[in-house]
C-alpha cells in the first residue's frame, strides 16, 4: 500500500476504531429506546402529553445550549492539541467539563422537582422512559467528564480526539432526546 492513497474502509474513520464501535453501539441503544418511547406514546397520546406537562422544557432547553457549547469547547481543544497549544487545549477541556457539571446540576434540580411532586418511574410509562433515558444519558455525561479529565491529564492529539468523540456522542444523543421527551 502506498502512502499517497486515501485511507479506505474502517481506516477512513476519523479517530479510533474502538471509539466508533462504542459510539455506534450507544447510538443503537439510545435510538432503540427513543423509538420504543415513540411507539408506546402512540398507544396513549393523551396520557403522555399530560405527563409531559410536568417537565421543565426551559431547563432542558438551557441544558441543550450548555451541552452544545461544551461540545464546541471539546472540538476547539482538539484543534489546539493538534497544533501543540497544550495549555490552551487543557483550558478548553476544563471549560467543557465545567459545562458538563452545569448540565448535571440542572438535571439534578429537575429530578429533585420531580421527586417533590412524588413522581417516580412507576407513575406512568412516560416517566419510566423519562427516568430511564435521561438517567442513562446523565450517566454518560458523568463518564464523559471522567474521560475528558483523563484526556486533559495525559494529553495528546490522539487522546483528545478519542475523548472528544465520546463527548460529541453524548451531545448527539441529547439533541435527539431533548425534543422527543420534552417538546413533542
Amino acid at each position: 500500500m502506498s502512502e499517497q492513497t486515501a485511507p479506505q474502509g474502517i481506516d477512513a474513520l476519523p479517530g479510533d476504531l474502538m471509539m466508533w464501535v462504542l459510539i455506534v453501539s450507544e447510538l443503537l441503544v439510545f435510538g432503540a429506546g427513543l423509538a420504543a418511547f415513540m411507539a408506546v406514546r402512540v398507544t396513549d397520546p393523551v396520557g403522555f402529553a399530560e405527563a409531559q406537562g410536568h417537565l421543565n422544557a426551559t431547563a432542558a432547553g438551557i441544558n441543550t445550549v450548555v451541552l452544545v457549547t461544551s461540545g464546541w469547547f471539546a472540538a476547539l481543544a482538539l484543534r489546539c492539541s493538534e497544533t501543540g497549544q497544550i495549555g490552551r487545549a487543557r483550558g478548553l477541556l476544563g471549560a467543557a467539563m465545567v459545562l458538563g457539571l452545569v448540565f448535571l446540576v440542572v438535571k439534578w434540580l429537575e429530578y429533585v422537582a420531580k421527586s417533590e411532586l412524588g413522581i417516580t418511574f412507576e407513575t406512568h410509562d412516560f416517566f419510566l422512559f423519562y427516568y430511564m433515558l435521561t438517567g442513562f444519558h446523565a450517566m454518560h455525561v458523568i463518564a464523559g467528564i471522567v474521560i475528558l479529565a483523563l484526556v486533559a491529564w495525559k494529553i495528546s492529539p490522539r487522546n483528545t480526539e478519542v475523548g472528544a468523540a465520546f463527548w460529541h456522542m453524548v451531545d448527539l444523543v441529547w439533541v435527539l432526546l431533548f425534543p422527543i421527551i420534552y417538546l413533542l
Binding site: 453501539s25 443503537l28 441503544v29 432503540a32 429506546g33 420504543a36 418511574f121 412507576e122 419510566l128 422512559f129 427516568y131 430511564m132
Partner: peptide, 18 residues
C-alpha cells in the same frame, strides 16, 4: 424486578446478535 428491566433487557439483548 422493576419494570424498566423490560426495556433495558429487550434493547441490550437484541444487540447481542451483533
Amino acid at each position: 424486578t422493576p419494570g424498566y428491566w423490560q426495556w433495558i433487557g429487550s434493547i441490550f439483548s437484541s444487540l447481542e446478535v451483533v
